[in-house]
């Protein structure tokens, strides 16, 4: 480790204390409380709380609704982060070339960062409104060809479109920075060896981009989940028929609308475990990759 120069017993702790307190209160304590509630049956108004062991987990894991929600969550994590990273990668590869539009594109592609997922949800739900939106003429010609309110496939398409839109900036910045850090000499050497652009993409750019790709994958998987709430709450409310009722949304509904504190806490614990596992594994893997490369 670098630095570590000053000696003091109290000062570093005093410096770190404010953040540690905030983290304890609003990050670690909620986690602890979730675990506590997951093993108790909690009366909403706090009248009583009884220890029930694994009963909450049995109940949650035994409900078909939970599994369909968990399935939808996994599907969303994979497809939403996958589609947005792919889009950002293509755009970054294009913007890496010194074209006239590149500077403009590099600026504009960051703009969605300024738009909350809930805001773009409001906008997309209007634009893609089956009767009043941009696709309404299609519906006039072929009724029912586009109806995200009843057709789950259409709903998913709408969600992914909005998610790609709002998730482009972060991945784009990181991937572009990675691409630009690849030395020109490697390109030249590749070209002299007769490797065409596709070949160089596959053999030079992508392998050298792995550290950035991993960062983007790790963060995008977690981000897609937290951003999903704003999209779902404004666009689908979990519908149609629960098709887009992701765990993040279901926990909110169970806890805040139905006062099922124990059930919501149990699902929170399960979801946190899932995300922590996925992210933790990637972190371990990623750390090694980054060190290897730089």
């Amino acid at each position: 480790m670098k630095q570590a120069i000053f000696r003091s017993r109290l000062l570093p702790w005093a410096l770190a204390a404010p953040q540690l307190i905030v983290l304890f209160l609003f990050f670690y304590l909620p986690i602890l409380l979730a675990f506590f509630w997951a093993f108790h049956l909690e009366q909403p108004f706090g009248g009583g709380s009884q220890f029930v062991g694994l009963q909450n987990f049995r109940r949650v894991l035994g409900s078909a609704e939970f599994w369909s929600s968990a399935g939808a969550t996994l599907l969303y994590m994979v497809l939403a982060s996958g589609s947005s990273i792919l889009a950002a990668l293509i755009l970054a590869l294009a913007a890496d070339r010194a074209l006239k539009v590149s500077p403009v594109a590099r600026n504009v592609f960051l703009w969605p960062k300024a738009v909350a997922s809930a805001s773009i949800g409001v906008v997309f739900v209007f634009i893609l409104n089956p009767y009043l939106g941009i696709l309404a003429p299609l519906n006039d010609l072929w009724p029912g060809i586009w109806n995200p309110r009843t057709n789950a496939v259409h709903t998913w398409i709408m969600l992914f479109a909005a998610n790609v839109w709002s998730a482009i900036p972060f991945s784009f910045i990181i991937l572009l920075a990675g691409l630009q850090a690849i030395p020109q000499e490697l390109h030249k050497a590749g070209a002299m060896d007769g490797a065409g652009p596709w070949r160089r993409l596959r053999d030079i750019q992508l392998p050298l981009l792995t550290p950035q790709l991993f960062v983007v994958i790790v963060l995008e998987v977690a981000d897609s989940l937290s951003g999903s709430f704003g999209l779902i709450d404004t666009m689908t409310q979990g519908g149609p028929g629960g098709a887009t009722n992701l765990l993040v949304y279901k926990i909110y509904a169970d806890g805040f609308k139905a006062y099922d504190l124990s059930g919501a806490a149990t699902q929170t614990v399960i979801l946190m475990a899932l995300v922590a596992c996925v992210t933790g594994l990637q972190y371990v893997f990623l750390e090694r990759k980054v060190k290897y490369d730089r």
Binding site: P240, G241, N245, A253, D254, K257, Y259, D260
Partner: peptide
């Protein structure tokens, strides 16, 4: 009890039936 939550479940299940699921 937990009737608010039941209403949501009822809506979700019947919606699936209406849309042919």
């Amino acid at each position: 009890g937990f009737y608010v939550q039941f209403r949501d479940i009822f809506m979700e299940e019947t919606q699936k039936a209406f849309t042919g699921g």
